[in-house]
């Protein structure tokens, strides 16, 4: 197995607030890892440090064995061009979709391929249609995002990320802004991706998804990995008090017997 994403001793602080306090994490190719934790635990920040939406204060990130950034006498230097390249290799999906409202669904999916990867119009279009097909929205290609439901928007956002041929996908609470009846379609798409062997790191509150789809679950608390393990074991019999409290907080959660 190849180590696709590796995070070593990652720290992130905003001013005096230490959000991440030395995270170590390795994600193998084809793995689906779910990050759990209450708000403020640092799970989203960790995700955003992996593709450098936020620059880590300390520590290193490796993608496919290559370290990101240059070590200049112990100080990390990140060139903006390198980070853009890195982000083009990592797909990210957001809570609020962040689709471009002035572009059609097809143009949304084509945009990065053309401006970032420099693909030809035709190639980008074929690729986009294939990805829209994959998320079941090929017939919406010429619509504008404002005409779509939340669930559809999120699937377009997933297609937009997939069209870049990412090596890993990051999902940042992608169902949190959706009406309850629309959550299912997005989770189904994500499950399908996982089953196709995509490497995925997901921040989510959907414990059912974690239970059934994840290979590994990490529970973050106050900027540290508090507990981690197989979802079945971890979610049924958490070892720590803190994680038990967290799971109890999700009162609607019922485990299969």
């Amino acid at each position: 197995m190849t180590e696709l994403v590796k995070v070593k001793n990652l720290h992130k602080s905003f001013g005096t607030l230490d959000v991440l306090k030395g995270i170590n994490l390795t994600v193998e190719a084809g793995e689906t890892v779910v990050l759990l934790g209450s708000s403020g635990s640092g799970k989203s920040t960790l995700l955003r440090c992996i593709n450098f939406m936020e620059t880590p204060t300390e520590g290193r990130v490796y993608l496919n064995g290559e370290a990101v950034g240059d070590d200049v006498n112990g100080k990390m230097r990140y060139k903006e061009a390198d980070l853009c390249k890195l982000r083009s290799r990592i797909g990210m999906v957001f809570q609020h979709f962040n689709l471009f409202p002035h572009m059609s669904v097809l143009q949304n999916v084509m945009e990065g391929q053309i401006t970032v990867l420099g693909r030809r119009q035709e190639e980008a279009k074929d690729k986009s249609m294939a990805q829209l097909q994959r998320v079941g929205l090929a017939e919406k290609a010429s619509e504008y995002p404002s005409r779509l439901s939340g669930g559809q928007k999120q699937r377009v956002a997933i297609a937009r990320a997939l069209a870049m041929d990412p090596e890993v996908m990051l999902f940042d609470e992608v169902t949190s802004a959706l009406d309850p009846e629309l959550v299912g379609e997005v989770l189904k798409t994500m499950r399908q991706l996982a089953e196709e062997g995509m490497t995925m790191i997901c921040v989510t509150h959907e414990l059912g998804f974690a239970y059934h789809v994840a290979n590994r679950v990490l529970f973050l608390n106050q900027g540290e990995i508090h507990e981690e393990g197989q979802p079945q074991a971890l979610l049924k019999t958490p070892k720590t008090q803190r994680m038990r409290e967290f799971l109890d907080g999700h009162a609607l959660f019922k485990l299969p017997e």
Partner: peptide, 24 residues
């Protein structure tokens, strides 16, 4: 979010301004 969405697919600040922010 528009800056974030563009950044996440690897667009530079200038590309984002020209293609995403200014047209809107």
């Amino acid at each position: 979010g528009q800056w974030e969405g563009s950044k996440a697919i690897g667009m530079t600040r200038n590309q984002t301004l020209r293609r995403v922010i200014l047209p809107q």
